[in-house]
Amino acid sequence: MICPDAPVLLEIRDLQAAVDDQPILKGVNLTIRAGEIHAVMGRNGSGKSTLSKVLAGHPAYTVTGGSVHYRGNDLLDLAPEQRARIGLFLGFQYPVEIPGVSNLEFLRVATNARRSEGGLEELDTFAFEDLVRERLEVVKMDPAFLERSVNEGFSGGEKKRNEILQMALLEPLVAILDETDSGLDIDALRIVAGGVNQLASPENATLLITHYQRLLDLITPDYVHVMAAGRILRSGGRELALELERTGYDWVDQELERFAAEGQQTGRAPLEVG
């Protein structure tokens, strides 16, 4: 839902980041307002997943330049847990298995961390069980998964449902879903996409990171961005995703080459290709 007057939730300016001294993000700009659904598409290695991890505060990535503001405040200053508590959520491409930690307890501790930050009372085990059973409906998840260790032995689809369940419990203002569609069959994809749609509201925003159009058939984005070589190369409406589906990513290479040539002519720093 595009609403030009809605408050800005996330403002990314010229964001640059590196891992092991290898620059990955080379100046990302993106503004996300309440109510919007954005999709970031791009090839493997374009920096999509790095963007999501940098926003969530993964310690392996170093921010080397630029800024990120969340509701007007500097996000990059905050520890990962603090980012989560104030309403940023990262749905993992590969949710981590944690043997020995009960899924139910994990969900409760996480939910209470978010609630107490928002000035809400923490939920005891009984109250939480009521809440979690209600939210299970969002992703049609079998309650038996609550009794197991976090993601341990879950199928790909079950892991992704568990991610969306966490999103349903944490009620983030900005949800970044990193390749939520990967490894899902069509039924699981429908359920997961249905969950995301149910949770979208005029107050929150969603950033979908994906390779494929098929997720965007189920979740309609307001904006589509194409990433390449650590930058957003082009932004548009949902028709951009359809165009990508039709033409593939070859034009991206041509555009990168053109930028590189222009950069040489104008003396501006060229976009690196590769």
Partner: peptide
Amino acid sequence: AEELFYLQSRGIAA
């Protein structure tokens, strides 16, 4: 480290 980050990314202190 990945397990720690996963928990942290859900609001659980380090």
